[in-house]
Write a protein that binds this DNA or RNA. Structure first.
Length: 396
DNA sequence: TGTCCACCGGAACCAAAGGGGT
DNA sequence: ACCCCTTTGGTTCCGGTGGACA
């Protein structure tokens, strides 16, 4: 047994490819953030109010994914905290922590109190949060990342409450840093929330290809052994990510996975084909993961779409729903209403698995036209492997 | 020039699961 | 013991709609 472990262990230790793979992982925050100097400066100059123990303005940060919003924010806050040491901050990702209850629970927990993870009302949690805040007697910065996801699901109520905490708390003060990659998001907000959350605004522009290249180069030196990754490979990864709205995280993922593939193939240099394979593999993993964790009826709807698309090139909501009902019935399962199915189709669209666009066909009504946005093989594989009921159905 | 299709999508509400406080 | 909470994945009801066709 331990031989196997040893073997695996030594293969990591003696990797011909990686010196230290960690530098390419998405949660690694580097010592310096190239090409984000302006943003760091701006953010720091707002937060520096902390020096006098004052509450900095609430800040709203926009920028597309992978433009360094999260990294810059964490970087500035942790550095400031090291130097000032008179405030605290919580970082909450509102896509993972996606209910008002859990946001409050997280804040309370980071402040050092325990709360039950269900059972209480949000009003009660709010009360408790105020209590712990009152006790801490400091300035508190609350970072809400991907705040748009939360508001889409639960409205801006909690934001309103959070922006008003300062009226309820006297010995401490809080500021909110909201981060979003949806630029239009702020328009839909309650005006009161908008004005108080947007006391200061910061926009992160996407990286261009050269900047991405520079970033990749710096990380590659740390992560890879010498000679494993050539300049042209880095250029390639940067170019691919730049096409994809300058997403640095994608660029780094690409480079890392390309390295992993190279290692698996027991080669000692990353080549263009490994980068291409990485691109495909990343997309495939993402799609697989998303599909495998879908609720049952969403999977069924997806299966219906796959089935329908073997006969037609595009499907309407009605056609999908008929198929779905047939499949569900033949499997002896209940089926959801068309209203719900329509929502499921929208959800699949937003996840990028299908592409659904609303069309008006005059006399023939208004509907949605659906086509698959990813390879059907991987969709089917994910469906069949994640639920044995489908396997029975598909083969039988 | 109006009709009318085949849905869209907002709103309110529901029930079971997983839990509280007092 | 009793009545309370949120979340998830729904349901019911319904007004709205762009443009092909008579």
């Amino acid at each position: 047994m331990s031989d196997i472990i040893d073997e695996v262990l030594s293969s990591v230790k003696n990797s011909a490819i990686f010196k230290n793979r960690e530098y390419l992982l998405p949660d690694y925050i580097p010592e310096e953030l190239p090409h984000r100097e302006n943003e760091i400066k701006k953010l720091a100059s707002i937060l520096v109010q902390l020096y006098r123990g004052e509450r900095p303005s609430n800040i709203f940060i926009y920028g597309l994914t992978g433009t360094g919003k999260t990294a810059v924010t964490k970087y500035v806050l942790s550095n400031l905290q090291r130097k000032l040491n008179n405030f605290e901050y919580v970082y909450i990702n509102a896509r993972q922590t996606d209910t008002p209850y859990r946001i409050l629970a997280d804040i309370i927990e980071i402040l050092g109190d325990k709360v039950p993870f269900t059972g209480l009302s949000t009003a009660e949690l709010y009360r408790r949060m105020v209590k712990v805040l009152e006790r801490s007697e400091r300035v508190m910065i609350i970072v809400l990342d991907e705040i748009d996801a939360l508001v889409k699901k639960h409205g801006d109520d909690i934001l309103y409450k959070l922006t008003r905490v300062n009226y309820d708390v006297h010995k401490s003060k809080i500021s909110i840093v909201g981060i979003t990659n949806d630029v239009k998001f702020i328009d839909g907000l309650d005006p009161r929330v908008r004005s108080s959350l947007g006391e200061e605004e910061l926009v992160f522009p996407p990286y261009n290809a050269e900047q991405l290249e520079d970033i990749l180069k710096k990380r590659a030196v740390l992560a890879f052994r010498e000679g494993v990754v050539s300049e042209s490979i880095i250029k390639l990864c940067a170019a691919i990510a730049a096409r994809d709205h300058g997403d640095a995280r994608r660029a780094l993922d690409l480079l890392r996975v390309a390295g992993e593939i190279t290692e698996r193939e027991r080669k000692n240099q990353v080549g263009e084909e490994e980068v291409e394979k990485a691109r495909v593999e990343i997309e495939r993993d993402r799609v697989y993961e998303v599909i495998a964790t879908l609720p049952f009826h969403s999977k069924l709807v997806l299966l219906s779409i796959i089935k329908g698309l073997t006969k037609n090139t595009r499907l309407t909501t009605g056609e999908i729903y008929d198929l779905y009902r047939n499949i569900a019935t033949s499997m002896g399962s209940e089926f959801v209403t068309q209203r719900r199915a329509s929502d499921i189709i929208n959800e699949l669209d937003m996840m990028g698995i299908i592409s659904a666009r609303v069309v008006n066909r005059g006399r023939y009504g208004k509907t949605k036209e659906v086509v698959l946005a990813v390879d059907s093989g991987i969709v089917l594989k994910a469906l069949l492997e994640s639920d044995e009921r489908f396997a029975d159905f598909w083969s039988g």
